[in-house]
């Protein structure tokens, strides 16, 4: 767990320090809003990673919707090379 926390500190810290230095007083309100939203979602994923859980992510949304159709198409086209 400490290893994962360290990885997150390095990742987030690196981005925030770099942008903090290079983008100081150059960011508009809209850019700040998008930046903040991305960081919040990033924090959610970071907590998921640190806690080693399997929380809801985009694949949990996509697989139920498209997984069935995809599998059917794949099975329909699959060729049995053994026979």
């Amino acid at each position: 767990m400490w290893e994962r926390i360290l990885v997150m500190v390095i990742a987030f810290g690196g981005v925030l320090v770099y942008d903090g230095i290079t983008l100081r007083k150059k960011v508009t309100a809209g850019e700040k809003a998008i930046y903040a939203i991305m960081l919040v979602i990033g924090l959610y994923m970071a907590m998921d990673y640190v806690a080693n859980q399997d929380w809801f992510d985009v694949y949990d949304l996509v697989e139920p919707v498209l997984g069935g159709v995809s599998k059917q198409i794949d099975n329909m086209l699959k060729v049995d090379w053994e026979s």
Binding site: E31, L39, G42
Partner: peptide, 29 residues
């Protein structure tokens, strides 16, 4: 794409959080 969609002036400001997002998504997904 994001800057056009949300009418931002400069796309370069949001590049590093996009890269961070991709890194985190690769870890958890």
């Amino acid at each position: 794409y994001l800057s056009k969609m949300f009418m931002l002036k400069d796309n370069s400001k949001i590049i590093m959080p996009i890269a961070l997002f991709g890194f985190l998504m690769g870890l958890v997904a």
